[in-house]
């Protein structure tokens, strides 16, 4: 499938700020499931900072804007060719040891309910891949997709208690449940072409990857009850949403910040 991406993030400041510094993880991953045909990231007045590929295989690019400025727009445009690898992250070069992703963060900490869910989900099977699928299915069952009931700071345990959430909550909950079973798990940020009844968190999409010995990293999208296929574009990964965020930034100045994000992913007719 050939997907076009248009992703605009506009930061507006209540008062002019002295400068803005950002760290971008906005470039498609390199692996067998996707090939980038074109990709540009534009920041008006932006000074390109240092760029590097990190240990997890993501391209990280620094960017700064000299003030005074009241608005910063980050525009991403590109075309990516994708294929369905049934969630397998094949041909992805990275150095971070999978065991590193057994460490928990504040939002992916398993409480008693998540622990119990994780134990119940895998009962009766010892096959690692089967276990991973069951964990993902259990999260899909336990958390109904519903926007605007959770926030960016909602924890996995909180969204499970609510029984509702968006893709970020599904991913956090699956990561927490997988770690209960000693399965390394991480958060993945990217895009999803939402055709038919597929859901994506209006802006960008997110899912989880679980490490299965012998197979490597495999993606699971509990919000859509599937593994990533040709509709998905993978950008980067981390322990949780904040660690994997496509844009992390800060402004020097007192102005209150507001954010406006639009994402359009379309399939090119062939």
């Amino acid at each position: 499938m050939i997907l076009t991406v248009q992703h605009t993030t506009i930061y507006r400041y209540g008062a002019p700020v002295r400068g803005v510094v950002q760290s971008h993880r906005l470039t498609p991953s390199i692996f067998d499931g996707q090939r980038t045909r074109s990709w540009t990231i534009t920041v008006d007045g932006g000074l390109s900072g240092g760029g590097f590929r990190d240990g997890a295989g993501d391209w990280v690019q620094g960017c700064s804007v000299r003030g005074p400025v009241t608005e910063v727009a980050v525009q991403v445009e590109g075309v990516v060719e994708t294929q369905d690898l049934a969630g397998l992250l094949r041909g992805h070069r990275e150095l971070v040891p999978p065991d590193c992703y057994l460490s928990e963060t504040a939002v992916t900490r398993a409480d008693a309910a998540l622990t119990e869910l994780a134990h119940a989900a895998i009962a009766g099977t010892s096959d690692p891949l089967d276990r991973a699928h069951r964990l993902a299915a259990a999260i899909s069952d336990a958390i109904t997709y519903q926007p605007d009931v959770t926030t960016a700071n909602t924890t996995a345990a909180e969204s499970l208690a609510l029984g509702k959430g968006v893709c970020q909550d599904h991913a956090h909950a699956l990561i927490a449940a997988a770690r209960v079973q000693d399965i390394p798990a991480r958060y993945v940020s990217g895009y999803l072409m939402a055709d038919g009844d597929a859901v994506s968190n209006e802006a960008a999409h997110a899912w989880a990857e679980l490490w299965i010995k012998g197979l490597g990293w495999i993606g699971f999208d509990p919000a859509n009850r599937c593994c990533p296929d040709a509709r998905f574009i993978r950008l980067g990964s981390g322990y949780d949403a904040s660690d994997a965020a496509p844009i992390r930034g800060t402004a020097r100045g007192p102005g209150a910040e507001s954010l406006d994000v639009t994402v359009a992913i379309q399939a090119v007719q062939q």
């Binding site: 990190d54 240990g55 971070v96 040891p97 065991d99 590193c100 057994l102």
Partner: peptide, 18 residues
């Protein structure tokens, strides 16, 4: 043992490969 290193609080994923 890998867990002593990679799950150590002081291990920084951000500098892997550097």
């Amino acid at each position: 043992p890998g867990r002593l290193v990679y799950q150590n609080e002081a291990y920084e994923k951000a500098v892997v490969g550097f």
